[in-house]
Amino acid sequence: MSDLTLDLQEGGAPRTNKPAWHRLLKDPAAMAAAIFLLLVVGAALLAPWVAPSDPYASNLRLRLCPIGGPRCPGLLLGTDQTGRDMVSRLLFGLRATLMLGFTAVAIGGGFGATLGLLAAFYRRLDTPIMRFVDVLLSFPPILFGLAIAAVIGTGLNGLVVALCITAIPSIARISRGAAQQVMHQEYMEAGRSLGLGDMRLLWRYLAANTWPVILIYMTLQLGQAILLGAALSFLGLGAQPPTAELGSMAADGRKFLTIAPHVSTLPCGLIFLLVLAFNVLGDALRDALDPQLRQ
């Protein structure tokens, strides 16, 4: 997200032409990220079926069993502070974390994208919508998290709301930029002269031609949403124990960093890989589709 602002103006018209995809296929890092994400999302979706045990079933006698410890044979990655199976918790944690990210970006990003399209399509809406977006952008994301946690209390609900709101402004700007370029295309004029209605023009022409760009930025936003969510959970403002969520697992386990480092390190590492994969893939997609950066 960091350099999104810089690229805002250059969110070019969509070109889902072959060379772009070819470029992507030839980028080993991007392919690795894509494969990793497919695996991870698959594992998260199937968590209830593939998890070896109940992620909430604690066994105090097995607490803080290290990876491959003789105390807990069969538990691949050991146990956490109440003796819960780490493999199962990581799977369910992944599921919760991804759900958080997807929900936030789908709802917040979807809302933002619609705002952007409307701003580009209706000139008179442009100023008020973009002012609203500017206002949202003027808040550091963490403040949304803090404020919402303070107002509606700590927990997953507040976290989702905060993440949704933070996803709105940047996606709105991207979608407006992309849509403005499409608005200049001849087929928009042609469609209008054919007497097509606003709704039809908006959805069939404008939205249909801007979604690839929006989607790419949503991918980048996903990484940021997950990172922010993890930070808020870490601060104790997000998912509450015993909920398996990567951020709160990392936070819960940090007490035992000295005697059982795996409890905190595993979820931390997983968050890192997840966000890294989203960022690498998002960057590659953007480079592939953005004519300006192509040299």
């Binding site: 870490f234 990392a250 960093l257 000295t258 905190s264 890192f272 966000v275």
Partner: peptide, 17 residues
């Protein structure tokens, strides 16, 4: 890109440790 992806608390935990 790694720098942008790493949770800040992880760096902190590692440094403290």
């Amino acid at each position: 890109v790694m720098g942008v992806s790493v949770p800040v608390f992880w760096i902190g935990l590692m440094l403290i440790q």
